[in-house]
């Protein structure tokens, strides 16, 4: 079947099986390989993308069900250079092997849009769907708090200007 997917603001027409999951369409048809497959069972969160702003496991999400929604992948949020959370992840050392990183970046992007000033506990709870085996999480949490702080400072600066 042919479906229309709006990925990172670009409308794409793709031919898919009715049973295709979004992850495979993103990686194999649209060559957006920044989204990773870690388990294909909805546990690890490496495949997290945003659908209408909400983080989902694209390995379990029907591609057809994503038609007409706004789909965002790590490539989309990197289009204009590093976002605040990406920059903070690099600076704070919230990255080791990097395989979980795109998924975590997407989850935290959604969190920071919904909660501009999260607590460490808010961040940890938001990450319940993302496993990082390398870092032990604390630098990811501190990166998120730093990104939030930087964004708030930026906003305050903009308001004064």
């Amino acid at each position: 079947m042919k479906i229309n997917l709006k990925v990172n603001g670009i409308l794409e027409e793709v031919e898919v099986d009715a049973s295709a999951v979004l992850l495979d369409v993103l990686r194999d048809k649209l060559h957006l390989t920044g989204t990773k497959e870690g388990c294909r069972e909805g546990e690890c969160g490496a495949c997290t993308v945003l659908i209408d702003g909400q983080p989902v496991d694209s390995c379990l999400y029907s591609a057809a069900a994503a038609a007409n929604a706004e789909i965002e992948t790590v490539e989309g949020i990197s289009a204009n250079g590093l976002s605040a959370i990406q920059k903070a992840m690099v600076e704070e050392g919230g990255i080791q092997c990097g395989f979980c990183t795109p998924g975590i970046v997407m989850t935290l992007t959604a969190l920071l849009r919904q909660n501009a000033d999260p607590t460490p506990q808010d961040v940890a709870v938001a990450l319940n769907g993302n496993i990082c085996r390398c870092t032990g999480y604390s630098r990811i949490v501190s990166a998120t708090l730093k990104a939030a702080k930087n964004a708030m400072a930026q906003k305050a600066g903009d308001a004064h200007a």
Partner: peptide
């Protein structure tokens, strides 16, 4: 900060499956 950070955080780093 690690030299490979920007590649990893943007999903550009190439892993075997890619």
């Amino acid at each position: 900060p690690r030299a490979d950070g920007p590649g990893k955080v943007t999903g550009q780093t190439l892993y075997t499956a890619d």
